[in-house]
Each structure stands twice: as C-alpha cells, then as structure tokens.
Nucleic acid binder design. Structure first.
Lengths: 342, 342
DNA sequence: TTGTATGCGTTATCAT
DNA sequence: ATGATAACGCATACAA
C-alpha cells in the first residue's frame, strides 16, 4: 500500500554500491571519492531519502534530544524559560521533547518514564506541585541519566539545579512593605511547602519580619497554591478575621495568586492599596494591566532556561563533574498595589 | 565507567531463559507461564530495566509519537491548543514532540525534517508567518507522512486542516461596528496575506463593507503582522493621514496588534472609543484588562487542538480516507473598546 | 510454554 | 576508496 520509505540500502542498490559508501557519502565522511559522493547525494535527493534517526540513535547510543518537563505551559514563566532552553540546545545541536505534567505527580512520573525509555540524552525538569516523594528522580540519578532541575528544585539528590533567589526576592519585597511603607500586619499567601519555591518564599518572608523585629502572626500565613483560585480562597479566609486582626498588606507567593486575592479584596469593597496593599512574584504579563498595577518580583525566566540547558549539556558531554546549584538574582518591579506611585 | 543500561538480554541471562520469553512476559503476551512471568517482572524491577523505545520503534515501524510545530509558544492561543492536542493524544496512547518555528521559515523546515527523520507517526502544524512556498509540506504529503494543519492552514496540498471561521468572525465583528455603531470610515490592520488567517480576516472585513454598501478605502488597509510592534507601527501610519481621512474605527487582525494600535492611539492623545473605536481577534488574556477593555472575537483554541489531534490520529490509524477541512465557529466578546458598555 | 533465527536501518570495524 | 560483517535492543515467525 503506502510505498515503503526509502533507505540507504535502496540508494546503494540503485547505484550498485554498498550501504557503507552511501552512509559515508551522506555524512560527509572522508575516504569517499568526490564523484561517488555527489552521485549518492543526487540519488538521495531524487529518491526523497530521509535518514532514520531512530536507527542512528540505536547504534550510536545518542539521540541528541533533551527531554523537558514543565508543570504548566500557560504559566508565562515557562514559555520564557523554554525559549532560553531551546536557544542553547539548538545551538549545541540538540532538539527538545517538551512534555508537561499538569502539576500532577502521576503524570510527571509517566512522562519521565517516557523520556527515559526514549533514551533522551538528558532531562530538564521543573517539579510538579503534587509530587511528594523523590523516588523517581533518585532512580534517574542512579541510572546516570543527566538531570537538571530548573526553577522548582529538589536539593540533595545529586542533581544540578538552576533557580532564582526566591528567598532573597521574597525577603526584599517584604522589607519594601516594612521599611518604605511601615505596614504592621503583613500576611503571606504561601505556596505548597514541599515545593522549593513555596518554602523559599515563605522563609524569605519570615526572615524579613524577624530581622526587622516586626510582629509575626501565624494566622496571617495561609496556603494559596500557585493559581488564581487558591489566592482568591486564601484571601477570603483572611478577610473573615475580625477587623483588628486583618492584614494591612499581603505578600502573595506568585502573581496569579495575587490576582485572585485582588479580586477577593475588591469584592469586599476594600481598596488597594488604601485598605490593603498587595505584592506578587513573577511579573506576569497581566501584572501591569490590572486596575491597580501589581508590584511584583521579576524572575529572569529566559536566563534560567539558558543556564539550565548549558548545565545539562555540560553534564551530557562529560565536562561536568561537580554537582552545583545556580541561583540567579531577581528584580523588584514597583508599581501601585504596594502604595507607591500614587 | 557509567554502567551500561540493562537490557532484556541481561534479564534473560540472569534468569537463564531466552530474550523472547522476557519480551513476552514484559509485554503481557499470552503463552507465558504465570510463574516465569512474575520472575521476569521481579527481575526487571530489581535491575531497573527500562525498555528501549528506540529499538522497539525500529522494529515496529511505529513510534506512537506525534510531532507538533507551533510558530510561537507565547501566543496564548497555542498553549490552549496544545492542551487540547495533548488531551486527545495521550488518551489514544500517543506522546508529543513539541517544536516551535519562531515564525521563521528556515527553522520550520528544519524542525519538520527533524520530526520526519525521527519517524513520528504524524505531524500537527500551524504555519510560520514567513513561509512563502509549500514545497516542504508537499514533500511530506508525497511521502505519506500524516499531516494536519491547525489554525493557520494551507489548502489544496492534500492535507487535512482544522481552523476557525476567521472570515465569518471578521465579517461579523466588522458588521457590529457598521450596524450597531454606524462608524463610517473603518480601517483594517491586516495580517500577512500569504498566511491563511491573514487573508481570511481581510476577506471577511471586505465582505462586511460590501454587503452593507459601506465606503471602502484602500488607504485604510495597512499591514500590521501578528505582533504588538506591527500594530503600533500600522496605527501610526493611519494617524498620519489628514484628519478627515483618518479612521473612525479599526479592526485589528488579532489582539496583540490591537494592543499596539491602542498604544499609538493613546499616545496621540485620542481616546478609545470616543475618537477611535477598535476591535481585536483572539481574546488574549490581557484583552479584558486593558484600560479600555478590548472587544474581540474568541477562538475555541482548545477545541481546535482537540479536533486536529483527533483528525491526525484517524489519519495515522488508517480510518481517514477523505481529506477534509474542519471549521469551528467563533464567538464575539463585546467589551468597551468598540463603543458598547459605556 | 519456550527457544532460534531473522530483520528493522544505521554505523564501526576490519578487510580488500 | 570501498565493501562485508557485526552490532545496537527488540519483536515477528516459526520450530521445538
């Protein structure tokens, strides 16, 4: 039925030569007669030959493919990071298999298995939210699959990691609320504590309070997850506190959570920043477009992608050696939601 | 150095049986002794066996992988569409290799070759903006690579296509400006005319004017491309016309172009919609957050992805037959930039 | 139920 | 410069 794909063997038969000569000619290897080479190339074009990378990978034990696992494609941070990854990868002759876990642990395990069985040369991963244990990552490391985490890291299992300085970023933005504005009761809508960035941002938040001898109140820490809906719910919870215990300012774990919280605040007929100030983290596309533009912390997503890919390729090509954790600096984007620029 | 990966052969040796029995046991084939099977499975787990899909694909001539080519990951339409694709694909037992062309013809050709040489079972593609000729697509079709276009289609080359009804969508939104608001001079910031959606939307725009016997003026059609910068430039051009020839309303080819145009309008100290009304196309995340919320046309991105994937899988699995073009309906999202909801 | 031979498409190796 | 053979890891077809 569907005519079979043309292989090197066909070309060889057509030209009355051996497959090896065809292979050599097509891969620009030395020791091929110039004329033979051009006859082979002509025939390959004429017959519509497309080399079979599968067979090639099988014998060479290399695919030149990097597997990438992201938890969410719609998350604005990730498309940026992916561009950085791709830039570096394609420059070094690698291609990408992009997969996503939808923030789901089972799905993540599934795609990791796929990538491993597909024999990708290495894996770049940003951990899904619901992953509670590191068995799968450990197995990969044991089997010597080059593995680099980015953004959401997993320390202590022998894999490299490239992230941003979440703790410092969270600490500084909190200090902005303390030092510049002097808000006393500050709440934190935090992320899941088993995800590195969730924990780091909470830590930064706490440190800011401590170092400034600022009042700390456990009831002002509410888990919100990374999405808008969670931020909305968490803020609602805070707004149910008696008036004198409500927060004067809020540090959200990321921008989507902040958006949800802003909605809750506005629904309560309160105004931002007069009644409650709020800051986010990540500088989402929408942050500056909000009715009250959101003060936030910008992460160098593109750079994170680049660095992670560079690290992975070093690991793949053997020039790595030392396990390392790379931390990139963040930048404060001051807008109006914190009380500045009235 | 790095211990070699464990293969079926190792398991066979370990257990003193043949590779075939191992293969059968692991793939849940019949004709394997229950006890043998469990011994094999235990050994596989113990040794950390991960089947080599590369070898498998080589012999089965099937990869169960679908290649996807998008022009832009950051384009909000595409992440949505990709989710639809993935949903259907993973449900049918396929995985995705995601690639992107960055709207560049050369890069697109490169990734198509990669996907073909990787022997993906089929390809889903949304054409890059700069592609001027269809040779590569034609070759794929000739070589019987199952191919389905989505969103940006290429008709007449024997490939399926799933898109939205761009022409009708553009016509209706233009008619909204004509019939509801009665704006006389209406401009169109158009897309590249060699890209299906660029042409279709311009056609819809023209039809709306024609059928309503509305004045048509060639100088009010300006090419803007699909990005914000192009929309900004195109609008600047229009604003340099003498006042009496300037447009009263603008139909932008998509939302990013509309955002750019809005910026140009506001920089000219004009107000939206009082001086110039504007509408977009795609319902970008940011559309409703703009200072003046943007009236636009929503495309069912998720559904487009789903349908395209369904079509492709039918083609791969042979139940296809007829080439077809599937067109999904759009929905008008009326906000304030057109002059409604004051 | 289990094993053997063979082939998928390519490249490395050793010959010629 | 070119060719023959084996190998990569697995599955199909057939034999035992």
């Amino acid at each position: 039925m569907s005519k079979k794909r043309v292989t090197a063997k066909e070309i060889a038969r057509e030209l009355g030569i051996s497959v090896m000569t065809v292979s050599r000619a097509l891969n620009n290897r030395p020791n091929v007669d110039a004329e033979t080479r051009s006859r082979v190339q002509e025939a390959a074009r004429r017959l519509g030959y497309v080399p079979n990378r599968i067979a090639k990978s099988l014998v060479l034990q290399r695919t030149h493919i990097i597997g990438v696992v992201v938890p969410e494609i719609t998350h604005s941070f990730f498309p940026e990071a992916i561009r950085g990854i791709e830039e570096v990868a394609s420059h070094a002759g690698y291609h990408l298999i992009l997969t996503h876990s939808s923030e789901d642990a089972d799905r993540e395990e599934e795609v990791l298995h796929l990538l491993e069985s597909q024999r990708v040369d290495g894996i770049l991963i940003s951990k899904a939210q619901t992953v509670k244990e590191n068995r799968t990552y450990r197995q990969l490391v044991e089997r010597k699959v080059p593995l680099v985490f980015f953004d959401r890291c997993v320390p202590g299992i022998g894999a490299d990691c490239v992230g941003v300085d979440d703790e410092v970023g969270a600490k500084r933005i909190t200090e902005h609320l303390i030092v510049v504005h002097g808000y006393r009761r500050i709440a934190h809508l935090c992320g899941p504590q088993h995800v590195s960035i969730g924990k780091a941002r909470l830590d930064g938040f706490k440190k800011a309070l401590q170092e400034n001898q600022w009042p700390f109140d456990e009831e002002l820490i509410v888990e919100a997850g990374f999405h808008e809906a969670g931020g909305y719910r968490a803020m609602k919870t805070l707004l149910q506190l008696p008036p004198e215990r409500q927060p004067r300012a809020v540090v959200a774990v990321n921008d989507p959570a902040a958006f949800g919280a802003m909605k809750a605040i506005q629904e309560a007929q309160l105004s931002i920043p007069e009644d409650i100030a709020i800051v986010g983290f990540s500088d989402d596309l929408r942050a500056e477009l909000m009715r009250v533009p959101l003060t936030t912390v910008r992460q160098p997503a593109y750079e994170v992608g680049r660095k992670a890919a560079e690290r992975l390729i070093e690991a793949i090509e053997g020039s790595s050696g030392q396990i390392m954790e790379i931390v990139l600096a963040t930048e404060q984007i001051i807008r109006r939601s914190c009380g500045c620029n009235p």
